[in-house]
Computed example of a mutant assay.
Amino acid sequence: MSLTHDPRDAAFHGRRTDGSPVRRPLSPHLQVYRLGITGNLSILNRIAGCAWTGGILLLVWWLVAAAAGPSAFATVQWFLGSFLGLLILFGMTAAAWYHTLGGIRHLVWDAGYGFDLPTVYTSGYAVLIGTGVLTVLTWIVALIVW
């Protein structure tokens, strides 16, 4: 019996049902997978959903501060008007548009359409381009009205 130098190595040694020793294979991690556009967009959709959840918490902070009084509301408004606040709001806008457009794409798939490979790529790129265009347009309109 040999001693292992790496404690993790012990987890990969085992025995078959007949008692003969066997070395179990290591499970690959993310770096070995080559995800296509659908896999990457799916992961990005989940990230956008989490970012949107964080944005909802920011909205709750803003509403609570508005109910708490002018001093608390001024603090939140100062933060949202700062460079970091505007950057967060811009990111929230992009996450909201991406999550919305990705959701529409999934609704089309749920209806049974758009599964052929060229359409999958086209709709994926349309979601990315649409997110960029709609985010910028939203901010142009917001800055004009503001």
Rank of each mutant, 00 (worst) to 15 (best):
W97Y: 10
G102D: 01
H106P: 00
P70H: 12
Y125F: 15
W109K: 05
V120E: 07
G81K: 13
F79Q: 01
G130A: 06
Y125I: 14
A72E: 04
M92H: 13
R23T: 15
G124Y: 00
W61H: 06
A65S: 13
D6V: 07
P28N: 08
T17G: 06
T119H: 04
W78N: 13
I140A: 12
L26S: 06
P21K: 11
N45C: 07
P7R: 09
V60G: 03
A95D: 02
D18V: 06
R46W: 08
A72K: 00
G114E: 01
G49D: 01
A111W: 14
L63V: 12
G91F: 00
I37N: 02
L87H: 12
G124P: 01
D116L: 10
R24C: 07
A142N: 05
G103D: 02
T119N: 04
A74W: 05
R16K: 15
G54D: 03
T135I: 04
R16Y: 04
A74L: 08
F73E: 07
D110C: 09
H5E: 10
H106E: 12
L30S: 10
V136A: 12
V136C: 02
W61S: 00
A65W: 01
W78S: 14
W62F: 15
V60C: 06
A67K: 10
D9I: 03
A142C: 05
T93R: 05
A66R: 15
S123W: 01
V64S: 03
I47S: 06
L35F: 13
T4R: 13
W62C: 04
F83N: 09
H13R: 15
D110G: 08
F12S: 04
T17K: 09
W97S: 02
L35M: 11
T122K: 15
A10Q: 13
L107R: 15
G55T: 02
S20N: 11
L128V: 11
L26H: 08
N40F: 10
L86D: 07
L137E: 08
S27Q: 12
L143M: 14
G14E: 04
A67W: 09
P118A: 09
W78M: 07
L84H: 09
T135N: 03
I129G: 03
T17A: 14
D9F: 08
D9L: 13
V76G: 00
L87E: 12
Y98S: 03
Y113A: 10
I144V: 14
T53C: 09
W109E: 03
W78C: 04
R23P: 00
W52L: 15
P28S: 10
G36F: 04
L59P: 00
G132D: 03
L41Y: 00
V22S: 06
I88F: 11
L87A: 15
G14R: 05
L107C: 11
Q77A: 03
D116R: 14
H106Y: 08
L30R: 10
D110A: 14
W146G: 15
T131N: 02
A65D: 03
V120Y: 01
L26A: 11
G91T: 05
T38H: 10
G132K: 03
A111C: 07
Y33W: 07
Y98H: 14
A66V: 06
G36Q: 06
G36S: 09
L101I: 05
V22Q: 08
V76S: 00
A142I: 09
L57F: 14
R23Q: 10
N45M: 12
V133G: 04
L80I: 06
L80V: 11
S2C: 05
